[in-house]
């Protein structure tokens, strides 16, 4: 009898356990049915890290109005300028032709550069064994220098001499939920026309990083190493450190940098100031993006 009682008690207990775990079983079943979450948020939210491109592109039907401004002062204690001595602005439009391809055009006030580019997203980073571990985006950009006689002078009237081309392979990875890293091997073809000894083809490697401080705030830094800079005048590698503020349809970047140029071929080959906090080397930069959605993603 005793044994029977124990058996009954055990069975009752077992039954109880079965019933109490039944709910967990349901979620377990769904967990097995549901595909694993492979989604990784984009490594960068803006299409720029600071001055250079990021792997991020705009989705289909999205038009981005991008303005970038740099301010700097002349050396000297006294200046009667309002706020800053000099400034340059680049205004650009970027449009997502598809979810992978976007197209942009822009113009810069200070160096009279008109630029255009195509950006194609090859892979997106995902979780999982067979998923791509990196975001890879290809960039092909071209620019036309419209300035009559610039600080770099030497520009001939030939149309082809005023053209420059940049090809980039942008590779980025979200290392953790907060930290993203980007490498950008870059090839630039740019005839500067200052000296015949100067090379026209340049190789550079870009480094970019983003660290999320909070849901809407992140810090970014970017650096380009140019391997074969020109010899007729001194150039330095462009560097920037900045803060991103990412809110709704407006994305804002504030940065400190040593380059006043905003198109790849110029900031890689023609940054004439090193990064320090003295005028005129220190540039305050401001990028603002406003995004227009021209296509409703929901099926009506």
């Amino acid at each position: 009898m005793k044994i029977k009682k124990i058996v009954i008690a055990c069975l009752l207990l077992l039954g109880g356990v079965h019933i109490s775990t039944a709910q967990d079983d349901l979620l377990d079943i769904l967990n097995n049915e549901q595909e694993d979450a492979t989604y990784v948020p984009p490594a960068f939210k803006m299409t720029r890290v600071a001055f250079g491109h990021s792997t991020e592109i705009r989705s289909k039907g999205v038009l981005e109005l991008f303005t970038a401004t740099r301010f700097w002062n002349f050396p000297g204690d006294r200046s009667q300028s309002f706020a800053a001595d000099k400034m340059t602005t680049r205004i650009a439009l970027e449009y997502g032709v598809s979810d992978r391809l976007s197209f942009g055009i822009g113009g810069t006030t200070f160096d009279g550069l008109f630029d255009s580019y195509l950006k194609y997203k090859l892979t997106s980073q995902e979780k999982g064994e067979k998923a791509a571990p990196f975001n890879i985006t290809l960039l092909q950009a071209g620019s036309y220098n419209s300035s009559s006689g610039s600080v770099y002078s030497g520009l001939s009237g030939d149309f082809s001499d005023r053209l420059a081309f940049t090809s980039q392979v942008l590779v980025s990875r979200k290392m953790s939920s907060k930290f993203s890293l980007q490498l950008a091997p870059t090839f630039v073809h740019k005839p500067l026309g200052v000296s015949n000894q100067d090379n026209k083809n340049f190789f550079a490697l870009g480094f970019g990083a983003r660290y999320k401080l909070g849901p809407h705030l992140s810090i970014v830094s970017e650096y380009y190493r140019t391997f074969n800079p020109i010899e007729s005048f001194d150039t330095y590698d462009p560097f920037a450190i900045g803060v991103n503020w990412e809110l709704g349809d407006i994305l804002i970047q504030l940065m400190l940098t040593n380059t006043r140029n905003m198109v790849e071929d110029t900031f890689i080959t023609q940054t004439t100031n090193n990064f320090n906090f003295k005028d005129p080397n220190l540039h305050f930069g401001f990028n603002a993006t406003y995004v227009f959605h021209l296509k409703n993603k929901l099926k009506k």
Partner: peptide, 14 residues
């Protein structure tokens, strides 16, 4: 999926 593509990014990330 959102009406606006960028909203989906904000939703997921922020």
């Amino acid at each position: 999926v959102f009406e606006k593509a960028l909203m989906r990014e904000h939703f997921n990330e922020s």
